[in-house]
Amino acid sequence: MTYKIVSKKELAPTIKMFEMGAPVVARKAKAGQFVILRIKERGERIPLTIADANPERGAITLVVEEIGKTTKELGRLNEGDSVLDLVGPLGNPMDIRKYGRVVCIGGGSGVAPVYPLTKALKKAGNKVTSIIGAKTRELLILEGEMQETSDEFYITTDDGSKGHRGFVTDILRKLLDEGKQIDLVVAVGPVPMMKAVADTTKPNKIRTLVSLNPIMVDGMGMCGACRVTVGEKTKFTCVDGPLFDGHLVDFDELAARRQLYEPEEKRALKAYEEKIGGADDS
């Protein structure tokens, strides 16, 4: 079985959005879940969040940031191309209900996974404040979509090229200092960002959910590659998560485990770039 790319859109120079034909997955997918994808016979299995699901069209949306060999290879595929394997939905959906005021934070390509959560939370009657951040304005994604589904909306960029100059936590800090009632914070993005968000909300004891991104292999609980320490207990992110209480996560351990294969990943990427050579048309 193969899975066809129904449409492709470039959201930022290194971030692509794909609509994939996967009717059974589309019918089942809920906010917070992900798929595991394998491009081709010799490929590896990588996890990607389901950013949107359209059961009528029999398709799901994936947003991919090109950071290494596999995501770069995926980025070069076009409408009409197929990938060999796509399995899901995996992981636990978020418990979507009315919390009150919710702050949704997305950093970098983390805006893609936070978007379905934001949309579902809004639909469940929550007051939603969104903060999205990126290094620079070209890397901001899903701006329109996020704004549309939020009551309050902030942008931050590290270099100040759009919105507030600085980090997403600056805005969060400001909201807290203003004494705004916040019932839940949801943050998805790079590990240091999620850690910073959790550190910001901890003194105020505001419930904070983060979506963790450890290395995965099978994605269905059979290997433990994705294990993380949460509240001193070992959890498998792919079956117990990916959403966890940010105040209980050992982020340093997560960061260290994510770096395990760095030299190998670099080697694979270099070999791949040499292979495609000047053919890079992206």
Binding site: R42, G43, E44, R45, M222, L260, Y261, E264, A268, A271
Partner: peptide, 19 residues
């Protein structure tokens, strides 16, 4: 699983690493 299913012993011909 890395070695048998993903053939990591043939990295980088196969994409899955092992160490």
């Amino acid at each position: 699983t890395r070695v048998n299913l993903m053939q990591a012993y043939e990295f980088p011909e196969y994409d899955t690493p092992i160490k």
